[in-house]
Design a protein around this nucleic acid. Sequence first.
DNA 1: TGCACGATGAAC
DNA 2: TTCATCGTGCAC
Length: 183
Amino acid sequence: MTKLPRSFYNRDTALVAQELLGKWLVRDADGLKRIGKIVEVEAYLGEHDLAAHSAKGLTERTKTMFGPPGHAYVYLIYGVHHCMNVVTEGEGHASAVLLRAIEPVQNLAGRTCGPGLLCRAMKIDRRLNAHDLLSDVFFIVEPDVAEKFSIVKRPRIGVDYAGHWAKRRLRFYIKDNPFVSRP
DNA sequence: TGCACGATGAAC
DNA sequence: TTCATCGTGCAC
């Protein structure tokens, strides 16, 4: 297992999103190493992307998105669930990749398909916002055994308010993977 | 200081 | 289809 370097995240967001598929999200907490394989993601392309939080500009909440790549952007949605993103591209670009579903690999209990459920299973909450993903307790690795799969591209979920941006196929998932939140 | 509104999930 | 639940951002 090789931890993804900063340079992996400092690239085109839609590309990073697709390359995150099949990678393992690792979280070491409470004496337990939890691992999930990323099977579904969405790309958010910076300030001009009306579906992205950063479209509102630099605010207290979105400043993590405007920060350096390779950090976690975690926020509370609907007052109930947490969503986990990976910041991409250079500092100030305000782009990120939302992790929407993972397949359990190690020490994961309960469902993991959906951004909120994924965070619950991985014990991710707002305390991890702005956390560096090159740390030793929260990071993403390239698995030793690479697998082959096809990538399906679809419009993002729950962003109908974003005009023409809602139609762009910036949601990516592993074809036929049973842990994808919605086919 | 108040209030409308979600990058969701679960129940009905 | 409806609702829970609360932090954020912006209007007064």
